[in-house]
Computed example of a mutant assay.
Amino acid sequence: MESWRKFKQVFWAVGIPPTFWLVLFFLIPLALIWVFSFGEKQGVVGIDITWTLDNYIRVFNPDILKIFWKSLGVAGLATIICLFVGLPVALGIVYAPNRYKGLLLLLIMLPFWTNLLIRTYALIAVLRQRGFLNFTLEWFDQKIRFMFDLVGLGGLGAAVLGEQFQALELLYNDKAVILGLVYVHLPFMILPLYAALERLDRSYLEASLDLGAGHLRTIWNVVVPLALPGIISGIIITFIPALGSFLTPDLLGGPDSAMIANIIERQFKSANDWPFGSALSFLLMYITFGALALRAVLARNSKDGI
């Protein structure tokens, strides 16, 4: 490959516009928020940059820590569910006939063609008290009761199913938030897993099965170690957006289901405390940088081990 130094004019012509865009609309706003995190709120809209650490110290408030640890738990659980659901799906796509792989990948990416807000409201229509899921359960409940009545066991049906169908409370709780996060972020787990599994040498799997290992043992002892880089990448790019998710807990969660992103939003809007909101925002940034650094270390160790 020719050195870029031989084509400096072309290099600068191609490189300057995206670099300018990145600096102007990404790095400078990010730097401003970082500076605000060391400021103090003055009046209604004023910010006095005093380079204080009080905003970061306020993060250790028990109420903030409680919400932060809860956010970590909810995002972590959603990531684990995405991993256990996404791994079989990715394996299924890898071993599907070649003529169907493109279609299956298209179905995985299809939700990205619809706005997140619309998808979330669609999920609300499914989970609400008079939504599609409760309506379906009620329909099955009526049919089962009818069958009990038909054979003269109406009393037994009432004893088993209860006197009347009770709609399930599926919305405005932590379970709904976790379900929403899994629904939104599952493709982010499947695609890296598929990319890692597609590169695997299938002879290893065939050898494991020929030597007497079952399918589950083959997946655990052969597939998982070989696909570990893809698994780690999938976990990182699923966990980080889930941790910083705002819309899903805001619409699907109740008053006690707020996550750290909802607290950040309140600092910038209702509380009008930009310095503290900036400190909370950069706390998530530091976690992101830490996760990416950990990913780089694990990848380097993996290469050194090879």
Rank of each mutant, 00 (worst) to 15 (best):
147 M>Y: 15
245 S>R: 07
131 G>L: 10
253 G>N: 06
124 I>P: 06
249 P>W: 10
216 L>D: 01
149 D>E: 15
154 G>E: 15
245 S>G: 08
245 S>C: 12
198 E>L: 04
261 A>Q: 10
202 R>S: 06
131 G>F: 09
183 Y>H: 11
238 T>M: 11
178 I>Q: 03
165 F>K: 09
173 N>W: 07
262 N>P: 08
186 L>P: 01
144 I>F: 13
218 T>H: 01
196 A>P: 00
247 L>R: 05
183 Y>T: 05
192 P>W: 02
236 I>K: 01
200 L>S: 01
143 K>R: 14
233 S>F: 09
187 P>K: 03
125 A>M: 15
201 D>C: 00
132 F>V: 14
246 F>D: 09
243 L>M: 10
198 E>Q: 05
251 L>F: 05
140 F>I: 11
143 K>V: 14
174 D>V: 12
241 P>Y: 08
231 I>Y: 08
185 H>L: 01
140 F>E: 11
165 F>S: 13
154 G>I: 12
246 F>Y: 15
143 K>L: 14
172 Y>S: 09
173 N>E: 09
259 M>I: 07
210 D>L: 09
179 L>Y: 03
245 S>P: 04
216 L>E: 04
233 S>E: 10
257 S>Q: 06
190 I>L: 00
130 R>N: 15
204 Y>D: 04
126 V>Y: 10
263 I>M: 12
191 L>N: 00
205 L>V: 13
173 N>Y: 07
258 A>L: 15
150 L>Y: 14
243 L>Y: 05
218 T>V: 03
260 I>L: 11
237 I>H: 06
239 F>Q: 02
150 L>W: 14
192 P>M: 02
142 Q>A: 14
226 L>F: 03
175 K>C: 06
228 L>V: 06
137 L>I: 09
235 I>F: 13
156 L>E: 14
173 N>T: 09
162 G>P: 12
141 D>I: 08
133 L>S: 04
174 D>T: 15
170 L>W: 07
258 A>D: 12
254 G>C: 03
156 L>I: 15
161 L>C: 11
259 M>A: 04
163 E>K: 14
126 V>T: 10
149 D>R: 13
122 A>Q: 09
218 T>K: 01
218 T>M: 05
191 L>C: 01
200 L>T: 03
136 T>N: 09
201 D>V: 02
205 L>M: 07
212 G>K: 04
227 A>T: 05
131 G>T: 05
188 F>S: 02
209 L>I: 04
226 L>T: 04
227 A>Y: 05
184 V>P: 00
150 L>Q: 15
221 N>F: 04
171 L>E: 07
176 A>C: 03
226 L>K: 10
189 M>R: 00
190 I>V: 05
136 T>Q: 09
212 G>I: 04
234 G>A: 12
141 D>K: 06
177 V>F: 05
258 A>V: 13
222 V>M: 04
156 L>Y: 12
234 G>K: 11
124 I>C: 08
158 A>G: 14
190 I>S: 00
146 F>R: 15
187 P>L: 01
153 L>Y: 13
231 I>P: 02
143 K>P: 01
232 I>C: 10
190 I>G: 00
